[in-house]
Amino acid sequence: MRYIALEEAFAIPDLAARQPATPMGIKVTSEYAAMVGRKIIDFEEHRLPDMDANGIDVQVLSLTVPGIQADESPAAARDNARFANDFLAEAVAAHPDRFKGFAALPLQDPAAAVAELRRCVEELGFVGALVNDHTHGRYLDHPSYDDVWAALEELQAPLYLHPGSIPADDWHLLDGRPELYGATWSWQAETGGHALRVIYGGVFDRHPRATLILGHLGEFLSFQRSRLDSRYRTLALSRSLDRMPSQYIGSNVLATTSGILAPEAVQAAVLTAGEDAVMFAVDYPYEETADAVAAVAKADLPESVKAKIAHGNAERVLGLARSQEG
């Protein structure tokens, strides 16, 4: 089975030195931190052998958290996005059959984000973009980002919405329970809520061909489709959506399997979002590649559906089939 992995992180030490210190508040073991530290800055010594050992044909690489969302000024964001994307382009060029790239965008300056997106897709050959949640409290339903969505739609480039920006809210729910912060729970709630802002903000009504990708099985939104619709029917709204909220999930909003290592969860995502809406990802180096592959391989699904998850849907959504034909 051919596997294309969509949420695979890299870091650039020189970039981190240029950016403000951003403690993320997640405490992990020293052994885990050391392992991630070795692998996340590497492209050949650890990453390619891990891919080969587990049957991963392609990793789509993206800048790790908090990425460009850490930058405070638009000027710094513009410079650092270009620096990061040029660095990634070199890594992809060294192994073009094994790596593809998601652009980092300086959303602090929406016009610059549009220009950088175009440069990355049209000149560097990137297959989309990835942002780490909000940008200093400004979410993707903000009117200032309408041109960004228009460019994504025009370029047929998906936007991957990843958790991990600097916290915008002081969640008292997390007080005294730091275990709940981050990938364990709070990131899913924050990122899923961000995606709902995009849906309820009418972004996909204005840009019906735009695509938003969510990791972690769609931050579990597909499992809430019926409830979203039942509650939407009760709301007194000044403006109605063109469709029911559930209908954007599985069409405009797609999911990857990143970080969810349970075959039964993959099955459920297919049942709720559809077999054309789920794509494979590992969340390398934060998760084990073998476990991510097993979650798809052991799922009680037809082989034709597993092939869509493993590679077919990604080839369609990222335009990889088009680029290979060309």
Results as ranks from 00 to 15, higher is better:
Ile166Lys: 02
Gly259Asn: 05
Met35Cys: 08
Ile4Asn: 05
Val253Leu: 14
Ala273Thr: 05
Ala33Asn: 11
Leu105Glu: 02
Arg209Ile: 05
Ala294Asn: 05
Gln69Ile: 01
Tyr3Ser: 07
Ala281His: 05
Ser246Lys: 03
Gly274Arg: 14
Glu7Thr: 02
Gly55Tyr: 00
Trp187Leu: 07
Leu241Thr: 05
Ala94Trp: 10
Ala277Leu: 07
Gly274Ile: 14
Asn85Val: 08
His162Pro: 01
Ala299Ile: 04
Val28Trp: 05
Phe99Trp: 02
Glu315Lys: 06
Leu241His: 08
Leu173Pro: 04
Val121Leu: 12
Ile26Ala: 10
Ile56His: 00
Lys27Ser: 14
Phe126Asn: 01
Ile56Cys: 00
Glu72Tyr: 09
Leu124Gln: 06
Asp146Thr: 01
Pro163Thr: 12
Asp205Gly: 05
Ser230Val: 13
His95Ala: 15
Ile56Gly: 00
Arg231His: 11
Leu237Trp: 12
Asp141Arg: 06
Met35Glu: 10
Gly125Val: 04
Glu31Asn: 09
Arg197Phe: 09
Ala89His: 05
Thr29His: 09
Ile68His: 02
Ala34Glu: 13
Ser73Lys: 14
Trp185Gln: 03
Pro285His: 14
Ser246Asn: 06
Val127Pro: 01
Asp109Cys: 07
Phe204Val: 10
Glu123Asp: 11
Val65Phe: 10
Val317Thr: 02
Glu325Ala: 15
Val28His: 07
Thr289Glu: 13
Glu44Cys: 10
Trp171Glu: 05
Asp291Glu: 14
Pro49Lys: 14
Val278Ala: 06
Gly201Ile: 04
Asp109Val: 01
Gly182His: 00
Arg82Phe: 13
Ser165Met: 11
Ser186Gly: 12
Thr272Tyr: 11
Ala11Pro: 00
Ala157Ser: 11
Pro208Phe: 09
Ala294Ile: 07
Ala5Phe: 09
Ile41Gly: 12
Ala93Asn: 08
Thr211Gln: 11
Ala104His: 04
Arg119Ser: 07
Gln267Ser: 08
Tyr200Gly: 10
Asn85Met: 06
Arg225Asn: 13
Thr135Met: 10
His207Trp: 04
Arg206Glu: 10
Trp171Asn: 09
Gly215Cys: 09
Asn85His: 11
Val65Lys: 03
Val282His: 02
Ala269Tyr: 03
Ala150Tyr: 02
Glu122Thr: 11
Pro13Ser: 15
Ala11Trp: 12
Tyr200Leu: 14
Leu63Ile: 01
Leu159Ile: 12
Thr256Asp: 14
Arg206Pro: 06
Leu271Asp: 12
Thr191His: 08
Val121Phe: 09
Phe220Asp: 04
Pro74Ile: 15
Arg227Cys: 07
Glu8Gly: 10
Lys39Thr: 12
Tyr284Asp: 03
Ala77Tyr: 08
Leu155Asp: 01
His194Lys: 07
His216Asp: 06
Pro13Phe: 13
Pro20Ser: 12
Gly250Asp: 06
Arg78Gln: 12
Ser238Thr: 05
